[in-house]
Design a protein around this nucleic acid. Structure first.
Lengths: 344, 344
DNA sequence: GCCTCGACGTTATACGTAACACCTCGGGGC
DNA sequence: GCCCCGAGGTGTTACGTATAACGTCGAGGC
């Protein structure tokens, strides 16, 4: 920037291509734009394309965006990419976006710590829309205020601000988990819940309590912990150490917490699943890395991203967004078994 | 786009703010730009800022980029974000970038599958530079050809094309692992190596063989597997099942492979670490989720991202990039112990 | 009393692209 | 012979911003 600017061959513009090809800049734009077929004779078009390739022409995207007033770029707001679930959501969204010549940029929202920077400054270009996963209400307000098409992922459908919702059938997943454990004979439960206060976790709790309530004779205690193996272990260890009848099954809001629960069990000398059943949620890679492998609920993370992008594209085109939650599946593995009492 | 365009109040421009504040557009730019302090009287400046806030003015980034010829945006090329290591690299790079009013967009490079799209089309804006982690040579060629400042992460320093390298002292990490195991008394090793053919893994292999060669009486077999728990388990299981003297330690290129190795051990009825020691690499969250926890090498992933961004900013400013690899640390946990023979 | 000068603003311009409106020209139709 | 028409191109404009170059005006030096 400071010096050595002159000798560098500046990037060729469409005008350079035009000059070299002996046509006007408008023609170059017509040819390379790809729309307007038949507007330019094939011989001329080919000459333009060849010259462009020869010069290594690359359209200036800033200029194009300015002209078009659109960048074909969406912002994806996620709590943290280090959570495999969201990394997969991104992958799904980015893949579908690419098919439609769209881009996805990320805004890892402040998960408690750090100053809440401006999500729109984080995107380095104008945005056509926003896809956001469930997040704190205040951060959400900022997004609403931006009058951009907004698609919410896995969040409260009664929040009618957004243009569309893409939800997982979380309640059904939790119901499947509970029914599975009840079927095995469990009656005393521990719910190792996320300390994060979002819709997706609230639904888990409600579904669990509903399903257990229907069973009549089941009891459940709840402890909450941050989404972290160590925190999950501590919370589970404390809960299991209290006097009174020990739970025979731990239902976790998340595979990460479930990993913590397994560690807690081992520390207390309880074998999983013989003496204690543990279930997770998400079906991360972690679930099959553990021993025993986790019984958990498979969430189609990539599909969430895809459907989110799909919904955004629909909104931008003025098409209606077909509603409907994404189905989730219980995956039974080695971390669940009948409780000790039921094993003769 | 098709209809209902008119009723929407178009986003205010700097000119709208100027009109409302009773000044010229240039003054608005001067005030909001923040440079040129003292160029405008404080009373006027305040009036402009107030009107801007009132109208909800947001500068058009496309126009700014066009004018400035720069977007303050870097492209980060990584194999896959679902690998926690790269998600952390991104987090580090994005955090430092934000401090310098820079943005980071991602290009998850085709890891074998999928058509290699254009990395520069993936970024939806002009780029000021590229930060790339080690990748296949052909993809790398495309980046070199773009005459953009390029910073390579954890890759062959003898590749002199890039503007700068940010490397981890991988060889030292592997040496620490080997010395630790040799010190415990191990002599028969299995190297569970990554099937990916990049510099960072080549260095691991070389360092391992060098360190073992120095020991004199140690032997090592190598098997390779994709970076995947299941694949790692299969490879390890087959290798452990062969006739002859069984290795007493498995050195893995990666925590994910180490998780596979642990599963293989359990399937074969070998207890870790009593009958078989296992080491990982990376210190992912997975390392402490497993039981026993993995002895592994902690890589400062966030720092890699930070230093990469730092180097890019330096190159852009014409400042020299100070070289030097990032140190890595052996973390001894429960997955390593003396071999059975050494335990009286 | 003239000139200078700094403080404060304004006017004008360019960035590179897309696309509207226009121009040219040869070939029919009548 | 005149007009129309479509094919194939070109001139021109606007997008919103940053900043260089240029007023203007009152205070102060000599």
């Amino acid at each position: 920037m400071t010096s050595a600017q002159q000798p560098v061959p500046a990037r060729p513009t469409s005008r350079d291509v035009a000059r070299a090809a002996g046509v006007s800049q408008a023609t170059v734009s017509l040819v390379l734009g790809g729309k307007w077929p038949g507007r330019v004779s094939e011989t001329t078009a080919q000459r333009v394309r060849d010259t462009a390739a020869e010069l290594g022409y690359r359209p200036n995207l800033a200029a194009r965006s300015l002209r078009l007033g659109s960048t074909r770029t969406a912002l994806l707001v996620v709590p943290a990419l280090t959570n495999e679930f969201f990394a997969r959501v991104y992958a799904g969204a980015a893949a579908l976006a690419a098919e439609h010549d769209f881009g996805v940029v990320l805004y890892p929202s402040p998960d408690g710590t750090g100053p809440a920077r401006d999500p729109f400054a984080s995107a380095r270009a104008a945005l056509d829309g926003v896809i956001a996963s469930s997040m704190a209400a205040d951060a959400l307000g900022a997004l609403h205020g931006a009058d951009l098409p907004l698609v919410m992922l896995d969040s409260d459908p009664s929040d009618t601000g957004p243009a569309a919702h893409v939800n997982l059938d979380i309640a059904d997943g939790m119901r499947q988990v509970t029914d599975h454990l009840l079927g095995l004979g469990h009656r005393r439960f521990l719910h190792l819940a996320s300390a994060v206060d979002t819709w997706t976790f609230a639904v888990r709790a409600r579904a669990l309590h509903d399903a257990l309530g229907a069973a009549g004779d089941a009891t459940v205690r709840t402890v909450r912990a941050p989404l972290d193996v160590g925190a999950g272990r501590e919370a589970a260890e404390q809960a299991l150490a209290v006097a009174g009848e020990r739970p025979t099954a731990i239902v976790c809001d998340d595979d990460i917490l479930a990993a913590g629960a397994c560690k807690a069990a081992r520390r207390l000398g309880l074998r999983v699943p013989d003496e204690l059943s543990v279930t997770g949620f998400d079906d991360l890679a972690l679930a099959t890395a553990l021993e025993p492998e986790l019984t958990t609920v498979r969430l189609p993370a990539e599909q969430v991203g895809e459907r989110g992008m799909e919904a955004l594209l629909a909104v931008l085109d003025g098409r209606p967004v077909e509603p409907g939650g994404l189905p989730v599946d219980l995956v039974v593995r080695g971390s669940t078994a009948p409780p000790p009492a039921a094993r003769a």
